[in-house]
């Protein structure tokens, strides 16, 4: 089921160009690839965030598919209502075609303010795919820290200062939280590994019931990388095991990519300006070491989970 570039160029983009996202932002690419991977009609719900504000400035819309933005914290609840309407109208014979339901949310709208609505919608078993584009902070409002912000990052609400090295707590592991719901397709993906991402979108859409993909989507603006470096930094996230590519299907773990020789986390951190203080300031080295240990712990745990849930 590999996606071939030669086929993809023939497909229509369901998110038009001309939107107002930053140059180099991978979020619109993520959307285009996702919708290209789906051979069905779709309805999209979008949480408040960069993607939403930049693609639908009235009277323009970049969306060529039915699309709804309701509020920040309720993309999952909103799409669950759309899906319920679809089921009701299909049952009554008012709709005959197959339609798939997709929600896009950033990390603020998913890890933090929207986690309750997402948890509820998954527990209820609505047939929808939630795609989280994780850029590790409230980037739309200017780089405030979120539950997805990693240790040591410089943000505007936990800024680096004489007495601060930025965020000290670890990043929340939402992929595991969602996997904990059971009876759900869960995957972690990265914009750098687009075929893997598209395969996961296809699987998520075909899965009967709720599906969730957490996709790493660097913010070139506030990760302080050049606008042509989004793919490079996302790839380093995967190569350092900071961002493992894996799936959890009904509780069964599968790691999709195991770097033969994982790179040190430092390589992911050092090209990003948001971590530059860690390489200059006292205590920075220790924080990097702590972060490396957390990466190792999570990776080891993942390997064990894969082994433990292996099906004979």
């Amino acid at each position: 089921m590999a996606f071939m570039l030669k086929d993809m160029v023939k497909k229509e983009w369901r998110l038009a160009s001309g939107h107002r996202l930053c140059p180099g932002c991978p979020a619109p690419t993520l959307v285009k690839l996702a919708l290209m991977a789906i051979d069905y009609d779709v309805v999209v719900a979008n949480a408040t965030g960069c993607l939403e504000v930049s693609t639908t400035i009235y009277p323009y819309s970049a969306w060529k598919v039915p699309w709804i933005h309701n509020a920040f914290e309720n993309a999952a609840a909103t799409i669950s209502g759309v899906e319920a309407a679809y089921k009701a109208l299909k049952k009554k014979g008012k709709i005959n075609r197959d339609i798939k339901f997709i929600a896009f949310g950033g990390d603020g709208g998913t890890y933090d303010i929207g986690i309750q609505a997402l948890s509820g919608a998954i527990e209820r078993g609505h047939d929808f795919l939630y795609i989280l584009y994780d850029n590790e902070g409230y980037m739309n409002t200017g780089n405030q820290r979120s539950g997805a912000t990693p240790t040591g990052a410089n943000t505007t609400t936990v800024p680096v200062g004489k007495k601060s090295l930025g965020k000290l707590r670890v990043k929340k592991n939402i992929t595991e939280i969602i996997a904990g719901h059971g009876r759900v397709y869960v995957a972690q993906a990265s914009i750098s590994h687009w075929q893997d991402f598209m395969n996961k979108v296809k699987k998520g859409v075909e899965y009967e019931g709720p599906a969730f993909i957490n996709a790493l989507s660097p913010c070139v603006r506030f990760w302080r990388v050049r606008s042509d470096q989004a793919m490079e930094v996302a790839k380093l996230g995967v190569e350092t095991n900071y961002w493992p590519l894996y799936e959890v299907v009904d509780g069964v773990y599968k790691i999709n990519y195991k770097p033969r020789k994982p790179k040190p986390l430092e390589e992911f951190l050092k090209i990003q300006g948001r971590f530059s203080h860690l390489f200059k300031r006292e205590g920075g080295k220790e924080l990097i070491e702590e972060s490396q240990m957390e990466v190792n712990r999570r990776w080891e745990r993942l390997l064990k989970l894969e082994e433990a849930t292996k099906q004979s």
């Binding site: 309805v43 719900a45 609840a77 909103t78 209502g81």
Partner: peptide, 18 residues
Amino acid sequence: VESEHSAMSACVGAAAAG
């Protein structure tokens, strides 16, 4: 739903859906 916030959110989604 798991809250009234989601109740009204789902109602909005469903009504917009038709």
